[in-house]
């Protein structure tokens, strides 16, 4: 088992499993910073996965697919904005509703376009390309995992860096944080909270879209119903534990990815019932949440 955990392929797979969760965590982070919870990241990823898979297939270009995936993610978040900011419905409940909406609309679209199928394997996506840095990728163990990856891995790193810079060094970042921490203060200096939240949700949608695109255009070559399977929620949990720090949230998401892959990959390596292995990511989330909250509570006294 130790051989397996320390192998190069283990690291590669952990990263592959973590990428969508990290995108989801980033999406959750930016919306929470602006003071609006986007529970529908899960659903937005699913719709983006459909849009990316189908549009890349029919256009023959992964760039078009990726663009449509991001647009789909943004559209789903704009529905949340419409419900929560304009119709003033509870953002949480709207999020639950939009997840239901997403699972319905994804199947409607796939069934409509592909004559009743629930996956798009007959219309394979055009994959997002791999990027390989010469020389560096030959470094043992970590070389391949860091320097020979899917393009979306590097986009993910860029997204993390973007978040850190956005939140710490820009005016918009300050506005977003103010909209979350103290909306009245924001309004009092003439910055519309609604406008700031919409901008945050657009960014959130782009990130959720990238996460969805990774699932159907890089990890797997097609969309299949239920392929997001809780990764959006795991991202939300990772963000909760990262407590608003992008890098910390990213690391927790990486940990979730690791446990997630351990549960899947372990089924062939370990002689342990796979059903119980499958509980691991969720069990770990629960336990980490408890440990984290206990530590927080003690700090506060």
């Amino acid at each position: 088992m130790l051989d397996w955990v320390l192998s190069e392929s283990f690291l590669m797979n952990v990263i592959a499993y973590a990428i969508p969760i990290i995108f989801a965590a980033c999406a959750s982070l930016i919306s929470n910073k602006a003071g609006i919870s986007a529970i529908n990241i899960e659903g937005a990823m699913s719709v983006a996965a459909v849009a990316g898979a189908l549009m890349s297939h029919f256009s023959g270009s992964w760039i078009v697919g990726l663009a449509f995936a991001m647009t789909a993610g943004v559209l789903m978040m704009m529905l949340l904005a419409l419900a929560a900011l304009w119709l003033r419905a509870d953002s949480f409940l709207s999020g639950i509703a939009l997840n239901t909406f997403a699972s319905g609309i994804c199947l409607l679209i796939v069934k409509g376009v592909l004559n009743g199928r629930t996956d798009s394997s007959t219309a394979p996506s055009v994959m997002v390309p791999q990027v390989r840095f010469p020389l560096l990728s030959d470094v043992p163990v970590v070389g391949k995992a860091i320097f020979s990856q899917n393009l979306l891995f590097y986009i993910m790193l860029a997204v993390l860096a973007f978040l850190v810079v956005l939140l710490n060094c820009t005016k918009l970042g300050v506005q977003i944080k103010t909209a979350g921490y103290h909306p009245e203060a924001s309004e009092s200096v003439g910055v519309s909270v609604k406008r700031t939240r919409v901008i945050a949700l657009v960014i959130c949608g782009v990130m959720a879209g990238l996460g969805g695109a990774y699932l159907s255009m890089a990890n797997l070559g097609y969309f299949s119903a239920g392929m997001v399977s809780g990764r959006g929620f795991m991202g939300i949990a990772a963000e909760a534990m990262g407590a608003g720090a992008p890098i910390k949230a990213g690391l927790f998401a990486l940990l979730f990815g690791a446990v997630d892959y351990f549960a899947v990959g372990g089924q062939t390596v370990l002689s342990f019932p796979y059903e119980l292995l499958n509980t691991l990511p969720y069990l770990m989330t629960l336990i980490t949440l408890i440990i984290y909250a206990t530590a927080q509570k003690r700090k506060k006294g």
Binding site: A89, S94, A97, T100, F101, G104, L107, L108, K111
Partner: peptide, 18 residues
């Protein structure tokens, strides 16, 4: 397909919440 019901349900929740 039957899944059309999910779309209907979602819109109902949002409108009622609003």
């Amino acid at each position: 397909p039957n899944e059309v019901i999910y779309v209907i349900q979602a819109i109902i929740i949002i409108l009622f919440g609003a």
